[in-house]
């Protein structure tokens, strides 16, 4: 199990997560409370959705640097349109369509014009941030009743535990992604692309369509994550979610998806998000540790997982 590139990294992540919980539980009172755990989901619902989209892209061997900027763009579109009096019933679908179309453009750029994913999504990142500034230079707050209701609603789970509707959305996205990746031909083609595009083509798979579609999915997930993010912050701000693409990539990598594609699971990425979340929680509980340790920890974890992946894949050459 541990030596397989398919399961090894995920198992390591799971063990790591449990270990961090154990350490937290020993050191801090109340750390192992159910709500602490649930808050990992509450605080990171949007990141889970982002990581799901990113997982699709990375599984094919690509990368999407635009997701943070697209989240910001979604918050700006939402905030400005709601301010102008549009109904959420129009705004939300519109955002999802717009970000999916952006993903489509990126996908076409990569597939048709053979632009490297890195560059194509970098361009999309600049485009999305630029559009944010066109909408407004300032933070716009949201007072729409649907959005505020969504933001303040807690879904009780019995005891004194509760979650937000965003968590439900994130969980649904994860379930959908698992089904798509594990049980549809499209999903298997995503893995096939990461295993070898040439092979996939020779096997007669729909390589072109799949390659474009993963970027549409990533765009859609970014839009959805942006909407969840506005539920969380109740505002739109052009500079929001800077560096979020790095968090998403880190979560996916720590969750055991190989950056060269082909190996990995959506549930692993969820574990990756939880690891990032629990590190943050530990640092909060510690009190004396400053928040910048989070980034150093994430960097160190990234390093460990990259070297681990390198070892696991080098062995089978």
């Amino acid at each position: 199990m541990l030596t397989s590139p398919k399961h090894g990294p995920v198992v390591v992540t799971l063990v790591l997560l449990l270990a961090i919980f154990a350490i937290g539980g020993l050191r801090y009172r109340g750390f192992l409370g159910g709500q602490v755990f649930l808050n990992l989901f509450v605080d990171n619902a949007y990141l889970i959705v982002l990581a799901v989209g990113m997982t699709f892209v990375i599984l094919t061997g690509g990368i999407d640097l635009s997701v943070g900027a697209v989240v910001a763009l979604s918050t700006m579109i939402a905030a400005s349109m709601l301010q102008a009096g549009w109904s959420p019933g129009v705004v939300i679908p519109l955002i999802l369509i717009a970000t999916s179309v952006l993903g489509l453009l990126v996908g076409l750029m990569i597939h048709v014009f053979k632009v490297q994913p890195f560059i194509a999504t970098l361009a999309a990142m600049f485009l999305a941030r630029g559009l944010c500034y066109i909408i407004s230079n300032n933070s716009i707050s949201i007072t729409d009743p649907f959005f505020t209701a969504f933001a303040y609603t807690r879904i009780p789970l019995g005891g004194r535990l509760s979650i937000t509707p965003s968590v439900v959305v994130a969980v649904l996205v994860v379930i959908a992604a698992v089904v798509v990746l594990q049980y549809t031909r499209f999903g298997r083609t995503v893995y096939a692309l990461g295993g070898g595009e040439q092979s996939g083509m020779l096997m007669g798979l729909a390589v072109a369509r799949t390659k474009v579609l993963v970027y549409i999915i990533s765009g859609f997930c970014s839009g959805l994550a942006g909407i969840l993010f506005t539920f969380y912050t109740l505002s739109g701000y052009p500079l929001t979610a800077i560096g979020t693409e790095l968090d998403a990539i880190a979560a996916v990598v720590i969750g055991g998806t190989l950056l060269t594609g082909g190996y990995g699971f959506v549930l692993g990425s969820v574990l990756g998000v939880l690891v990032l979340g629990v590190i943050q929680t530990i640092i909060t509980f510690e009190g004396t540790l400053s928040s910048w340790w989070t980034r150093i920890f994430i960097g160190a974890l990234l390093l460990v997982f990259i070297v681990l992946q390198k070892l696991l894949t080098a062995r089978r050459r």
């Binding site: 990368i63 790095l246 400053s290 980034r295 150093i296 920890f297 160190a300 990234l302 990259i306």
Partner: peptide, 18 residues
């Protein structure tokens, strides 16, 4: 290279904060 330098990109600002 993109991944290798991503490590420092992520951790670097934390180190600067430190």
């Amino acid at each position: 290279p993109i991944i290798a330098t991503l490590v420092l990109m992520t951790a670097g600002r934390g180190i600067a904060m430190l």
